[in-house]
């Protein structure tokens, strides 16, 4: 352990030396007050490039959608593949799911402290409100569907930890429902992306053809739904206890 501390401190010193050399001695010749050509280009073109704009009055979102719209769309697809991969690796047949339900009913009933439960309820309400404001103001302020959705996933995780998986399932958040909500979010994204092609004869993702900020708002809401319920699906699938999973897979159930 002592050796670890020495290594960590020497890393720290090396890093501080590098920071000093870069910032004060200016070894690489970065910095300075003058604007480089790339920065100038972004400053003058960030809100609209050759007439193409996502109608966002906020510069981070404007750059993200005007220059990296396809990138964000493909991130959604990568996330979809990850969720579906986890879902199909851990899938069970209908009979096996029935067995899982029976075995879970037999597990001892445990409960967190009253203080923990009461505070979790309060905090979850606050997180839900914040995540909704991040996601629904995604076209006006920094943040958006993905950020809001991941904050919302944290809220569902808190419920998961302080209460249990069964509380969520009793409230209607079963895997079937979360997957349906995930599909709804993806459908909203796809509809918004393809709407310019079919309605206005434009290109894919040319959301400036849609009236006002509707395109960006729809994408935000779709991504919010997709990320929230995508994460929740994975947590619900992974939340089955390991011994139950093993018992069911081996088929060793004797009543």
């Amino acid at each position: 352990m002592k050796r670890d501390v020495i290594v960590a401190v020497s890393f720290l010193l090396a890093f501080l030396f590098m920071a000093y050399a870069l910032v004060y001695a200016n070894v690489l010749g970065l910095g300075g007050a003058e604007l480089r050509p790339l920065g100038e280009f972004y400053l003058s073109h960030s809100f609209a490039h050759e007439g193409l704009t996502s109608h966002s009055p906020e510069v981070v979102t404007a750059i993200v959608w005007n220059y990296r719209g396809f990138d964000t769309l493909f991130e959604t697809f990568v996330f979809f593949l990850a969720i579906m991969g986890a879902f199909s690796v851990l899938r069970l047949t209908d009979e096996q799911e029935k067995l899982v339900k029976e075995l879970e009913a037999r597990e001892p009933h445990r409960q967190m402290d009253l203080i923990v439960r009461a505070i979790t309820k309060l905090v979850v309400i606050m997180i839900v409100a914040i995540s909704a404001s991040i996601a629904l103001h995604g076209h006006l302020t920094p943040g958006g569907g993905f950020q809001g959705g991941s904050a919302m996933a944290v809220a569902s995780l808190l419920l998961f930890a302080a209460f249990s998986k069964f509380t969520l399932e009793r409230k209607g958040l079963t895997v079937k429902h979360t997957v349906s909500a995930y599909a709804l979010g993806l459908a909203l994204i796809l509809a918004t992306v393809l709407a310019p092609v079919f309605l206005y004869g434009g290109k894919v993702l040319e959301i400036n053809l849609l009236p006002g900020e509707m395109g960006l708002f729809n994408l935000d809401v779709g991504e919010y739904l997709a990320v929230t319920f995508g994460f929740l699906t994975v947590f619900l699938v992974l939340g089955v206890s390991e011994w139950i999973f093993k018992t069911v897979l081996r088929g060793e159930v004797n009543d």
């Binding site: 981070v60 979102t61 993200v64 991040i134 920094p142 943040g143 958006g144 993905f146 950020q147 991941s150 904050a151 996933a153 944290v154 995780l157």
Partner: peptide
């Protein structure tokens, strides 16, 4: 925007 995503993902 990175802060919002990074905190929720990495810590939560």
């Amino acid at each position: 925007d990175i802060v919002l995503a990074y905190l929720a993902i990495a810590v939560g």
